[in-house]
Write a protein that binds this DNA or RNA. Structure first.
Lengths: 249, 249
DNA sequence: AATTATTTTGCAAATATTTGCAAAATAATT
DNA sequence: AATTATTTTGCAAATATTTGCAAAATAATT
């Protein structure tokens, strides 16, 4: 097996699972841990993943590449996407950012739905191309390779004359005290702008994002209209989130 | 067995398997590893594959559908792309539209090249993401599903304050009498705008596009700065194209 | 603080590549 | 048709790369 093949497998697995351990990779690829470790180091040098103690985690870039079409279905994403679908109605203008969940929402949208989707995520535009009746507006600007989205002042300017009905926002962290925050400054500004031009903001948050903290704050929890998670309403992690004027699905 | 035959076999195998090892090739072709190695080196020089330790892997565009059938390398595209590369220099602003050749150019660009690429083609942005030093500006606007590009007045407006050095234009047809023309009205307008903001316009035209005619005219032949084809200079099809002030490669 | 897991480092064996060379095959010239 | 030049091919020696291992160092966990 060629080194490049192995690295390809690593990236694919990362694209679907978000994280891998070196032990797993060694078994899957049937080479020593030293070899996979060296592969992972090379891939990190090329900026394609982030190496951590014991394994590696994906840049969202990879998710974009492999989520379209093949790949293992991540049930948590699907659960969230299904809930999100209920909020979508014909003839609405929907804003979708670079959040991974948005891919799953896009894939699940009914084929005959007539809406306009505005997005800064080109890969989302590709996925939505399968829907004949959806109109797609792509936001221009500087293309940020790592997250595979457009960003910057041009992107914000493009939003100036748009009024959206729903905004499906992705986030890296959400908590009662610190609100919503993400890892990238410019993107946090963009998300604020997106909120400001949308009638409703809906956050889709994986379990792991809840009660975490990140560097760049986007908004307070109470600024949201709706939070969608895969947790049940009885779950402890959600205890502080109720009765704050935010719908929780 | 002729060298060319062997190389053909290598490319075909690469087209289906995406990767080959030199050991396998040596056995299949029944020549020494030195010979297959030399073949692979030649093919790499021609931009038809990527050589790696122990074998070779296909370029990602190998999988792209071509008139010659799926999985077959379209050498014509690669030939044109190779010629186009010579025009690209560091620190230039390069405009690339939705032309198919632009994928090949993008993939063949040197990894250390420092340029800015402006494009209305999101898939091109993805391909260019592999180049760490290339800055990418994506043009916003209505996303036209069929061609997977952004189009319309917003896209044209985005070009307003940009001055590009080179514009690599794709076309559906080119002839002396009718000039350049394509099949889509809105796109023809966009191409005109793109020409107007670029110091040089280079057209990459497949053999089959030459001396054809299409519905929406973009410009006259003499408005171009350079025409790149895979034909040789002696070819009849090009007879009328010379001495019009347009470089022909 | 002790235990366990992971990483780093240097090393040796296996494998692959590069280089120059000579023989064979092919193409060009007389 | 014979000679000459050029290209192709396989080989062998010198290098370089990859791989797995083991010991030491470091990080994470209990």
């Amino acid at each position: 097996m060629l080194k490049e093949e192995r690295q390809q497998v690593i990236l694919e697995k990362l694209g679907t699972d978000k994280k891998v351990t070196l032990v797993d990779l060694g078994q899957i690829l049937n080479v020593s841990y030293d070899s996979v470790r060296r592969d992972v180091i090379e891939l990190e040098d090329r900026g394609l993943l982030k190496k951590v103690h014991g394994g590696a985690i994906a840049h969202s870039y990879l998710a974009m590449k492999s989520s379209k079409g093949l790949g293992v279905v991540n049930t948590e994403f699907v659960t969230i996407a299904k809930k999100a679908l209920k909020l979508v109605e014909n003839n609405k203008i929907i804003l979708m950012d670079g959040g991974t969940t948005n891919f799953y929402i896009a894939e699940q949208l009914p084929k005959n739905l007539e809406v306009t989707v505005v997005t800064n995520n080109p890969h989302l535009a590709t996925v939505l191309s399968e829907h004949p009746k959806i109109e797609i507006i792509l936001l221009g600007g500087s293309f940020y390779k790592r997250y595979q989205i457009t960003l910057g002042s041009k992107t914000i300017q493009d939003l100036e004359n748009i009024q959206a009905d729903l905004y499906f926002m992705g986030t890296n962290s959400i908590s009662i005290e610190s609100g919503l925050a993400i890892r990238h400054y410019e993107e946090s500004i963009l998300k604020q702008k997106m909120m400001s031009i949308s009638r409703k903001t809906i956050v889709c948050a994986l379990e792991e994002k809840i009660n975490r903290e990140e560097n760049y704050k986007v908004c307070n929890f109470t600024d949201l209209d709706c939070l969608i998670t895969s947790l049940n309403s009885s779950d402890d992690q959600l205890s502080g989130f109720w009765n704050k004027g935010v719908d929780i699905l």
